[in-house]
Design a protein around this nucleic acid. Sequence first.
RNA 1: GUGGAUGUAGCUCAAUGGUAGAGCCCCGGCUUGUGAUGCCGGUGGUUGUGGGUUCGAGUCCCAUCAUCCACCCCA
Length: 411
Amino acid sequence: MSKKLQSIRGIHDGLPDEVQIWQHIETIARRIFASYSTREVRLPILESTEVFVRSIGTETDIVSKEMYRFEDRNGDDICLRPEGTAGAVRAYLQAGLSRSGTQRWFYMGPMFRRERPQKGRLRQFQQIGVEWFGVAGPIEDIEVLTMASSFLDELGIKTRLEINSLGCPDCRPDYRKKLTQELEKCQDELCGTCQQRLSTNPLRILDCKQASCQALLKDIPEMTEHLCGICDAHFLTLQRGLKELGVPFLVNPRIVRGLDYYNRTAFEFISEELGAQGTVLAGGRYDGLVSQQGGPATSAIGFASGLERLGMLLAGKVKSPQIDATVVALGASTHIFSLQIAHTLRQQGFHISHCGTGSSKALFKRAAREQARYTLVIGEDELARQIISLRGDDEKHAFTLSQLIEHMTAS
RNA sequence: GUGGAUGUAGCUCAAUGGUAGAGCCCCGGCUUGUGAUGCCGGUGGUUGUGGGUUCGAGUCCCAUCAUCCACCCCA
């Protein structure tokens, strides 16, 4: 006997009940994004590792520990994409679109990160993402945020929106320096990982989860108070726009990003229902990335959202597709006739399931499970007279095929 | 990567170290034409996997795999 086969760790199957929810999410995404003239791109799942090294760098654990990276047969260093933005920028530049005006893109598809899995944190997961290129903002920041907000609203997912400004290469280094100086004063009281972060990524200390660190941060200077004039104006306009457009938000100066190409607007839509995996949609401005990948200075903003997490919040709330009719064929002699009926109805655009063979009890039980609008009963009598009965009615109320089509169309 | 919890039937869960069970679901019969109720019957398990201790292991020990929780990281 062979061992039972199973999918590999953190890589799960999408079974019909879950896929149905994903498709619902995707349908709404397509509609909302289209209303912002944002068009779909389909980008590679495999990229050369260089694409991510250039955008993510080798500083964090990401490239070294958390990517599926391997050597192709010809020696190329390639990997499964861990996110969508880097590949989108690569595609944008490869197609020479930097001289074609604003590009508004969205994508949906699988991403791969080799992390310790949890619920809502898988190694293969799916993201829906948006990237807008050539948009300096803050108008586009407001639009991207209202778009994201409409998307979640339309899904009926309750979140709170938190925004922050990360500043820019002009003002962030000063703030980082000031923050580091302040934190060095109480260095010994910081938790172990934050003492590390002091040298590697001091901004990350701002969202440390240790209560002791948060207490030390109480009187620390905030990024939002140290923005340069341009960043400050950008952030204020964004806030005013959101207010005027009725998008509720909270300024959270402790939102940070792990990578340097992010600047100014950063935002997260957070659900209360998912514990530590509560961020359901996150994004921000990344004016530095296109040039970092070797292109011309190009402003850009985007966000991404995990389908699995959205799906968990919608579990049980998405209706199954309605089947129009299910066919009960009683007795072997009726099988072909019943198949012809089903076939014709399908050609008319109806959704039909056929209950197959078995005892009448089994067939009607199967039929009931389908929860179709109609159960069509076809037995010897119906076959002889070329008619179809409905469950619950006797043969006096039977339909000819054309009458049935008319009846089903009318109701 | 670190720390912790949990793995018994399709699902929810029982079982002092001593014969692996219940409810629900599924299938069939009473009832070869309308998912009732009822009764009767049935399928389904190498107790995640592999070792060890023991006369005897679902139970104790070790390893491993998976899921879940928190941390790390978070693109």
